[in-house]
């Protein structure tokens, strides 16, 4: 049983398939507020739990620890680098034209953080604890997405 196997590699068969999938991703109540404020006013919004006072960034309409409501508040958008990496490979593991610096940025006035790119800084100049501020796309080009933030730069 089960002893018939393909031993001639030239006989091996497969076919190439692909999945073409399209979505719209709803930003949600909190996301909508955030991205509109970012697009229209260049402002950053966080969300504070009405019960425990934890300030969420990215903002959301509920506190995941208390399972209760939050209220929105404006924050500076500035932050501090908690961790970073210099990425040299693209999604196909091929070299990127230019390395990209990703960082976890603890956001001022919140208990949260943002993962985004760093710019206007050399790879070997980045340090943990470095203070950074956001650089936004020109107002006329903003679309209300996460890429309206181009990157964070040293402040």
């Amino acid at each position: 049983m089960f002893n018939e196997k393909i031993v001639d590699p030239a006989e091996l068969r497969h076919w190439g398939g692909k999945i073409e999938l399209y979505w719209i991703y709803t930003s949600g109540e909190a996301g909508d507020r955030f991205f509109k404020a970012l697009r229209d006013e260049g402002k950053f919004i966080a969300a504070k739990c009405k019960k425990c006072g934890r300030v969420y960034f990215p903002p959301r309409m509920y506190c995941e620890f208390d399972f209760s409501e939050t209220e929105y508040q404006e924050i500076s958008g500035k932050g501090r680098v908690r961790a970073y990496t210099v990425a040299w490979l693209d999604k196909d593991e091929k070299p990127l034209e230019k390395p990209e610096i990703y960082a976890i940025i603890d956001m001022e006035g919140t208990d949260g953080c943002m993962i985004h790119l760093l710019g206007e800084v050399e790879e070997d100049q980045v340090e943990i604890g470095m203070e950074v501020e956001p650089v936004l796309r020109d107002k006329s080009e903003r679309e209300g997405t996460i890429n309206d933030i181009l990157y964070f730069k040293p402040s």
Binding site: P58, L89, D90, E100, Y102, I115, I128
Partner: peptide, 26 residues
């Protein structure tokens, strides 16, 4: 996360583990 994370930059998502490593080693 498609809204907050997926479309940031062009790197392989291995970067996400590297960020965690950066925090862990420090």
């Amino acid at each position: 996360d498609p809204v907050w994370l997926r479309d940031i930059g062009n790197a392989h998502p291995y970067y996400f583990a590297a960020l965690e490593m950066s925090q862990y080693v420090s």
